[in-house]
């Protein structure tokens, strides 16, 4: 169970949110709403354990995630604004390189299969720098598919620059993850039809 306990954070001199309390059970999704710059990304990064709230704690299975350290971060899939891809490597090489460092089983077959599922099979030998933003996002989503056993998915604007078919593909994957008992925390500005009703957390 993932819990926020009276989390407070200021950025510079502005209090982004104060005394935020929230809990998320297995098989639940949380949509974080808020106008741009309201601190959505900061909250997501706190949940990943990157940054530390000014006050309050984030608990996973009633233990502070900072105390858990690696044991917690090993459970998290984070998709931020950046796709973590090297421009002059091909999609396949990128995934082999980054997944091998993260200790996720990354034999070439699994990677090719994941890329094919994002209909990128025609782009295997093309350096990522020549792919469009949508295609690069699909490579990042392919990596998400490979490391899908990680229970906690934290996605910052995952649907941006995706075309219709990829958006449906991603919604299906997210619904499947949540219905299998996973945790999903995400932000988006588009209308997304997930199978399960997400909880809403608004930051003003």
């Amino acid at each position: 169970m993932l819990e926020l306990k009276s989390v407070t954070t200021t950025r510079g001199y502005k209090k982004l949110f104060e005394d935020l309390n929230f809990s998320l059970e297995e098989g639940e999704a949380l949509l974080v709403n808020g106008v741009n710059g309201s601190g959505k990304t900061t909250l997501l990064r706190i949940l990943c354990g990157f940054s530390r709230p000014d006050a309050g704690e984030v608990h996973w299975a009633n233990k502070d995630i900072r105390a858990l350290g690696h044991d917690y971060s090993r459970l998290v899939n984070y998709l931020g604004h950046f796709d973590a891809l090297k421009g002059n490597l091909t999609a396949e090489e990128n995934l082999i390189a980054s997944l091998s460092v993260m200790g996720i089983d990354s034999d070439v077959a699994t990677i090719r299969e994941a890329l094919r599922k994002q209909d990128l099979h025609s782009k295997l030998s093309v350096p990522v720098s020549r792919l469009s933003a949508g295609q690069r996002k699909r490579v990042a989503l392919a990596r998400l598919r490979i490391s899908r056993e990680r229970p906690i998915w934290i996605l910052d604007e995952p649907f941006v620059s995706l075309d219709k078919s990829s958006t449906e593909l991603l919604s299906a994957a997210l619904s499947e993850h949540v219905s299998n008992g996973g945790f999903l925390i995400y932000t988006t500005h588009q209308e997304i039809g997930l199978d399960v009703r997400p909880k809403i957390l608004t930051i003003n």
């Binding site: 990943c48 354990g49 990157f50 690696h70 044991d71 971060s73 090993r74 998290v76 899939n77 984070y78 931020g80 604004h81 950046f82 796709d83 973590a84 891809l85 090297k86 421009g87 980054s98 460092v101 993260m102 200790g103």
Partner: peptide, 22 residues
């Protein structure tokens, strides 16, 4: 710098592997 800008460094932090060794 390269890994910082394109977000790879974040993924390393989440890898669950000791950052010092990386």
């Amino acid at each position: 710098e390269g890994d910082f800008i394109d977000g790879s460094l974040e993924q390393f932090l989440l890898s669950g592997e000791p950052l010092v060794l990386i």
